[in-house]
Computed example of a mutant assay.
Amino acid sequence: MKILSAGSFLAASKNNLMKRDQYNPFRVMVRKEISDQVHSWRFILLLVLMLLTFAASMYISASNIRTAFSNTDDPDHSFLYLKLLGATDGSMPPFHVLMSFLAPLLGISMGFDAINSEQNSGSLTRLLAQPIYRDNVLLAKFYSGMLIIGTLFISLTLLMLGAGLIITGVRIEPAELLRVLAFVIITIVYVGFYLSLSILLSIAFRQAATSALCALGVWLFFTVFYPMIVNLAIRAILPDPANLSQAQILGYNELILDIMRMAPGQLYSDSSTTILMPSIRSLGPLSMEQLSGAIPSPLPIRESLVIVWPQLSGLLAGSIACFALAYYLFMRREIRS
Rank of each mutant, 00 (worst) to 15 (best):
P227F: 12
F153I: 03
L181V: 14
R206Q: 06
A175I: 13
Y133C: 03
L197Y: 04
L201Q: 02
I186T: 11
Y194A: 07
T187Y: 05
N136V: 08
A182H: 11
Y133L: 03
L220Y: 05
R206W: 04
A209W: 09
I167K: 12
R206D: 00
G164D: 06
V224M: 09
L138H: 02
L152S: 09
V218T: 08
Q207T: 15
V137Y: 13
V137I: 12
I154F: 09
Y190N: 11
F142C: 06
V170E: 14
E173Y: 14
I149T: 14
A175R: 12
L201K: 02
L138W: 00
W219L: 14
G145E: 01
E173T: 06
A215S: 15
Y194I: 13
G162P: 03
I185Y: 08
V170M: 14
D135Y: 11
L152I: 12
L216R: 06
L152D: 03
I172K: 02
V218R: 01
A163K: 09
A163C: 05
I188L: 00
E176M: 07
A209E: 11
L200M: 07
A204Y: 09
F193A: 11
L213D: 02
F205K: 01
M228T: 05
S198P: 03
V230Y: 03
Y143I: 00
T151C: 15
A182K: 10
V180Q: 04
G145S: 10
L213I: 07
V184S: 00
P227C: 11
M228C: 08
F222H: 10
S196E: 03
A182F: 13
P227H: 14
Y143G: 10
Y133P: 02
L156D: 09
L161W: 03
L195N: 00
Y133W: 04
V180K: 03
I185V: 14
L159V: 14
Y143N: 11
Y143P: 02
L181P: 13
A182P: 09
I172R: 04
G169T: 12
Q207V: 10
F221D: 04
K141V: 05
I166L: 15
L159T: 13
L158M: 15
S198L: 04
V170R: 12
S155C: 13
L159D: 09
L161V: 14
L161N: 09
I203Q: 01
V180E: 01
F142Y: 09
V180N: 01
P174M: 10
A212I: 02
E176I: 14
F225R: 01
L181D: 12
F183V: 15
C214M: 14
I148W: 01
L197M: 12
L165N: 12
E176N: 08
L159K: 02
Y190A: 11
S155I: 14
I186A: 12
L220I: 15
A163P: 02
L156V: 09
L178S: 15
N136T: 12
C214R: 06
F142L: 09
C214P: 10
S211C: 13
V224C: 06
I186Q: 07
L159R: 05
D135R: 10
I166D: 10
N136F: 05
K141A: 01
T210Y: 10
